[in-house]
Design a protein around this nucleic acid. Structure first.
Lengths: 153, 153
DNA sequence: CCTAACATTTAGGCTACCTAAGTATGAATG
DNA sequence: CATTCATACTTAGGTAGCCTAAATGTTAGG
């Protein structure tokens, strides 16, 4: 693939990323838990996770994770526990109600997505399936790019 | 493809959408203009667009578009003009500086994406290319799903 | 005309991110 | 041990970008 084709693919892929944000909003924007909250609930099994790990999995800073966890705790879906090995740390676990809610919400959300996917051709579904691992790889690659921050508008 | 395979694909596709949000943050999070702002700048050629059309293209409500346009106007990249056909309406156009900035920012952003794509196998690039139109189709399908709004946490 | 529909802005609110600074514990070192 | 540095988390305060509801002015239809 030559330079120009690559640039064209890059451009269209950038548009696709933006589209993914829309799709995500359309799909999840009206439900009980935000996508982030459902992710947290899903990853904190009954074994529990450290706050820092949650943040890392989400791709956000620790204080952002703290905020979401606190909210889910207030809603009775998660609990903070002391880590016996390290008094600095916190272990976040789902409550029984959290288990139930996570399962329900996830089921509803997947069902909605299935409704959409059902309208597609088999070849299109195959295209989707094939592209999934590529996105993972791209995400990994981007870990290596750094981030200052300044906006002009 | 049977019911269960479809559900599994739906699940993994949902994860991919979340990943797309990360990738987008990693890729664009540190630059001069937000993704939304660059989209606006790109779509408002020198012909200009109505505020409502901008909002529609972005997939947001009109007041959200107003806000971003105002900001870009303050930054000297866009201008509001009266529509001679309809005094209620506004036509948003890029300034010459807006032209220049849009081109530059877009070039830089694509270059960064090319750097990432260059690390992939030809088959992976092909997978990406094939999946792009499928995302468009999914987005269209989702237009038909409605949106109240209530969170439990 | 008068009323209803439309295009936009303004005002106010919320989520989810961020950075910087504070607290407390743990680990390493002289 | 005492000190110091690193780690894990929370708190405080700020910002972007979305939302709804209401205000303003314009057009179009009966």
């Amino acid at each position: 693939m030559n330079e120009q084709e690559l640039a064209s693919l890059a451009d269209r892929f950038r548009s696709m990323l933006r589209l993914a944000v829309f799709v995500s909003r359309r799909l999840d924007g009206d439900l009980e838990l935000s996508t982030t909250q459902l992710s947290i609930l899903t990853m904190c099994g009954n074994d529990g996770l450290r706050m820092g790990v949650i943040a890392g999995n989400l791709g956000v800073r620790v204080p952002s994770a703290t905020e979401q966890v606190s909210r889910l705790e207030r809603a009775g879906l998660l609990e903070r526990h002391a880590d016996p090995k390290d008094a600095r740390a916190v272990v976040v676990r789902r409550t029984p109600r959290g288990d139930k809610t996570a399962a329900e919400v996830s089921r509803r959300r997947t069902a909605r997505m299935v409704d959409v996917l059902e309208t597609l051709e088999p070849a299109e579904l195959e295209a989707l399936r094939t592209a999934l691992p590529v996105m993972d790889k791209i995400n990994e690659r981007l870990h290596s790019i750094s981030n200052p921050k300044e906006r002009i508008a």
